[in-house]
């Protein structure tokens, strides 16, 4: 077993723009946002200034921060800092319960256990004062009330 844990030090930093600043600001409160179109209902990620389907202006939608691994890769070679210190690590595309997909790192599991369909939950780690990074962890089995 080697449990994948990754830090945030040295990671690329998002350049906040007029749209992304709302998304990243929410991450600092522990909220994962996607967008929903008030006109056609399309939900989308990444955030845009328009609905990618009908071009109307979308609204923000707070997600439950849960989803399933839609696809992934285990990166075993990357010469770039800071990532090379964390090899091997899992890059996942998570399909959120609300529909849109989002890329991230899955941590806290053995990379050999990562699989499509794996249920995951978000776990924010502060990167800067203005942005926290949404990591993903295997969703703990529900605790029985009995």
């Amino acid at each position: 077993m080697s449990i994948s844990e990754m830090g945030v030090e040295g990671r690329p930093v998002p350049e906040l723009d007029p749209v992304s600043k709302h998304y990243w600001e929410a991450t600092t409160r522990g909220e994962l946002l996607v967008q929903e179109c008030p006109s056609c209902g399309t939900r989308q990620f990444y955030p845009r200034a328009l609905c990618k389907m009908c071009a109307k202006t979308p609204e923000w939608l707070k997600t439950a921060g849960r989803g399933k691994v839609h696809t992934f890769s285990i990166v075993r070679q990357n010469g770039n800092e800071p990532f090379k210190q964390w090899l091997p690590y899992a890059v996942v595309v998570v399909e959120l319960e609300e529909g849109p997909r989002i890329m991230g790192n899955l941590v806290g599991s053995d990379v050999d256990d990562v699989h499509i369909g794996m249920e995951v939950s978000v776990d924010f780690v502060p990167l800067t004062d203005q942005a926290s990074l949404p990591f993903w962890r295997a969703t703990a089995p529900a605790v029985s009330d009995g």
Binding site: V13, P14, V75, N78, N80, M103, L133
Partner: peptide, 12 residues
Amino acid sequence: QYESPWGNTLIG
């Protein structure tokens, strides 16, 4: 900005 922080590679 939504992908680079995750260290995905071209091959990845």
